[in-house]
Amino acid sequence: MLKETEIKSKIRGYIIKATFDDIKKITDKTLIFEEGVLDSMGLLFLIEFLKEEFNVTTNDDELVVKNFESINNIFEFIKSKLK
């Protein structure tokens, strides 16, 4: 099982690679959709990344802000799915 820091670092690494954003701009608390870091296509690619990297499949009813709002929230979502 991956550690929390490793999971968060992988998510952050993915977002930075996908958006060409400055690494310092994105913290674990950054509201990635609210602040426009990722758009709707960004959400779809992020879902694919979670599947490929962590084998986490997202269902229709899990597409809620609580699960994707920030790196912290995405980590909690992954954790709940890997239980």
């Binding site: 959709f33 990722l38 709707s40 959400l43 779809l44 802000v65």
Partner: peptide
């Protein structure tokens, strides 16, 4: 799109 428009997340397609 199955999500509600008031959801504060971009839409995803089914």
């Amino acid at each position: 799109i199955k999500q509600d428009i008031t959801s504060n997340l971009p839409p995803a397609f089914s």
